[in-house]
Nucleic acid binder design. Structure first.
Length: 668
RNA sequence: GCCUAGGUAGCUCAGCUGGUUAGAGCACUCGGUUCAUACCCGGGUUGUCGGCGGUUCGAGUCCGCCCCUAGGCACCA
């Protein structure tokens, strides 16, 4: 059994912009990696960038650069993010790294030789804009359902990975290993997915269509599908290679944990694990899919700076350590969380300033004031000290178990509980009374315990808040290395040596409070909220998903009309005033209303309009509208529409065009 | 309409495989203390655990139906 700990983040898409989601995953990985290092386990922590694929190719072309040069340029921002967050990765892998390309090539060849990959021809509708195939029935009016762009029918030959044959085996594995996909709700999700049946996976792209990728070793006309390429980074990161593996690579494999966002669960839990099965490699111990940060009500952000604003702004205002603490403490890893600046401020003030920071400060200042500023000796523990010692020991146990289970939230609550007990202890022992009454020995014992408790808290928090914890250690006359030694000793002793890590007689320093309290929201954040609506139209902070949706909506928006048309073109459109007589919901579509509109003809027109999001049927009856009267009728989800209504609003309908004129009147 | 998550104190959320009077933090309030960053400690208030049925000796916890919210998918001439 290997004692090593190998943890990964997803490799991030190099074209993208680092945002809160990336920061979150990476901080979590960094914290657990650092904790494992502290406990003495050999650790490898891998992160990096995903650099192949169509969009990179296009972006590079737009800039007149080679794809690689473009990536070299883009990767800087990712490395900068890592630096800002003080991420202590062991390797930053890029899918364009030579060793990775070599691994991918060799793995493909091996799988090809083993008949795990086959060649097949099929016909489908390809959308260049969406980079994917659609079946006939997916298409909307013969166009790409995602982007609305034209599609072309392509008969194509590609290479397929025999993923389907591993479906049963994978289900059995997941059922036999409850921890292999976490949290458990995600595990059920994957099982549900597998029960529907697993097909084979297309893993190539013809170069004629897309050339930026790793060439298929057995066919120079193709490159590797980006996911197949990208997932293998986890193996490259160990030193694995089918032909020439680095010595000891298998001490790192299987990975202890792949941390991922819940959006890429299937690729990891299904594609990646079946790939490993085909490769004959053991499967990762845990794939942990965490949740998203959702913007709370009333959140605003700068429009131009995108989502990066959140993390950078938090770091700027509250410091990196507090930011790292907040992410891991505020919500359970795995669940979605609501983010608000007020919540952050409250968490900071309560946990860090009032409780932890203040405990340290009061402990240190009393020691300085009454005991000469050195770590005092302890003598004759009373029940209070015994109880504190027991709590300290159990805190270490809880913290360790929680960190191992990636339950950061629980680990940090345990520290908070310890700090709370420390504050309570001080109040109960009343060291100020002891000092007044000249009970020096007892005072020394109490102060020693308070300082020891701070030392333990700093020790446990070191992986989470490297700077602040080191600062606190320094105030106590200790170093991070001392803390690491202490932690190992604590774990070895089951926590019984807790509260015995300081050296009597060592000088302590009070200095400034560790976490200054914020009376009000820091200016740069407050400014976000104070900005006048007109000048900086506030946009809600968006989650990754919401952004995705927005992006798609933008793509779906009808293409801008030609800049200029002739009068003759306009004259082709017959616009008439209409009056809505009846309105009801479409029986089979939630966004559509079916209207009867009088346009001055013998019988009213039936018009189907996509305005349900804005109007209830009753809102419209009697309303005068403008109708495009000579539009060819169309069937909309089974109901005929004999015209359309003029409406204001781009992607979202804001209002209908109204006029004060009788039905049937021409609009020109 | 379909698919996923959820709906527990004013707010943010814990409540694992069903078991004593349903919890925490924040907020609020009363009291204590004064070493400390107007901080800390103690007490207190608030809940038809979304609704209705069901299984059970017993359900926030399991089952069914329904309602609502957030995402995703379809539809938006």
């Amino acid at each position: 059994m290997s004692d090593t700990f190998y943890i990964t983040t997803p490799i991030y898409y190099v074209n993208g912009t680092p945002h809160i989601g990336h920061a979150y995953t990476t901080i979590a990985a960094d914290v657990v990696a650092e904790y494992m290092r502290m406990t003495g386990r050999p650790v490898r922590f891998l992160t990096g960038t995903d650099e192949h694929g169509q969009k990179v190719l296009e972006a590079a072309a737009k800039r007149g650069m080679t794809p690689k040069a473009h990536c070299d340029d883009m990767v800087v921002r990712w490395k900068a993010m890592m630096e800002r967050l003080q991420i202590r990765y062991d390797r930053f892998i890029r899918t364009t790294d030579a060793d990775h390309e070599s691994v991918v090539t060799a793995v493909l060849q091996k799988l090809w030789d083993a008949d795990e990959i086959y060649k097949a021809t099929y016909t489908g509708w390809y959308s260049t804009s969406a980079e994917r195939f659609w079946t006939e029935k997916d298409l909307v009016d013969g166009k790409c359902p995602d982007t609305g762009q034209p599609v072309t029918e392509i008969t194509e030959t590609n290479y397929f990975f025999r993923m389907g044959k591993y479906g049963e085996q994978l289900m059995a594995h997941i059922e036999a290993n409850p921890d292999c996909i976490q949290p458990s709700s995600r595990r059920n999700e994957v099982l549900g997915f597998l029960r529907k049946g697993l097909g084979d996976l297309c893993i190539s792209r013809p170069k004629s269509r897309m050339s930026w990728g790793i060439e298929m070793p057995f066919d120079p006309d193709y490159v590797t599908y980006v996911w197949f390429d990208a997932l293998l980074n986890y193996m490259t990161g160990t030193g694995y290679h089918p032909e020439s593996p680095a010595e000891g690579w298998d001490s790192w494999w299987p990975a202890s944990a792949h941390l991922i966002g819940k959006d890429i669960l299937t690729t990891h839990a299904v594609y990646w694990t079946t790939m490993l099965m085909a490769m004959g490699q053991p499967l990762p111990q845990t794939i942990y899919a965490h949740g998203w940060w959702i913007a709370g009500d009333g959140q605003k952000m700068s429009k131009s700076l995108g989502n990066t604003i959140e993390v950078d702004l938090l770091v700027e205002c509250f410091g990196l350590d507090a930011t790292r603490y907040f992410f891991l403490r505020e919500i359970a890893f795995g669940a979605d969380g609501t983010f608000s600046y007020e919540g952050f401020l409250s968490r900071y003030n309560v946990d860090l300033a009032n409780d932890l920071g203040n405990l340290a400060h009061r402990g240190l200042s009393m020691t300085t004031k009454w005991l000469g500023g050195t770590v005092p000796p302890s003598s004759a523990p009373t029940d209070a000290e015994v109880a504190l010692q027991a709590l300290a020991a159990s805190t270490v146990q809880t913290f360790d178990a929680s960190m191992k289970g990636l339950q950061f939230h629980k680990a940090l609550v345990a520290v908070s509980d310890l700090v709370g007990a420390g504050n309570k202890y001080v109040d109960a022992q009343e060291p100020w009374s002891l000092n007044r009454e000249g009970k020096t020995e007892r005072l020394q014992t109490v102060k020693r315990h308070v300082l020891e408790l701070c030392y333990l808290a700093a020790t446990l928090l070191l992986p989470v808040m490297p700077n602040k914890a080191a600062e606190l250690l320094s105030k106590l006359g200790r170093t991070p290395d001392d803390a690491r030694d202490s932690l190992r000793a604590l774990l070895a002793s089951g926590g019984s040596s807790a509260l015995d890590g300081l050296v009597e007689g060592t000088a302590v320093t009070v200095g400034d409070p560790l976490f200054p309290r914020f009376r009000e929201m820091p200016e740069p954040i407050a400014a976000l909220f104070a900005a006048p609506e007109e000048e900086a139209p506030a946009e809600p902070q968006l989650s990754k998903r919401q952004l995705k949706k927005l992006k798609r909506q933008k793509k779906k928006a009808p293409p801008a009309p030609p800049e200029r048309i002739e009068y003759a073109d306009f004259a082709k459109v017959a616009l008439k005033v209409g009056r809505v007589l009846e309105a009801e919901a479409h029986p089979d579509a939630s966004k559509l209303l079916v209207l009867k509109v009088d346009v001055g003809e013998e019988s009213p027109r039936q018009i189907v309009a996509g305005i349900r999001a804005r109007f209830e049927p009753g809102d419209l009856i009697g309303r005068s509208v403008v109708v495009v009267a000579n539009l060819a009728p169309a069937m909309l989800r089974g109901v005929e529409s004999q015209g359309m209504l003029l409406a204001a609003g781009g992607t979202e309908v804001l209002d209908l065009v109204s006029v004060d004129a009788p039905p049937g009147e021409v609009v020109r």
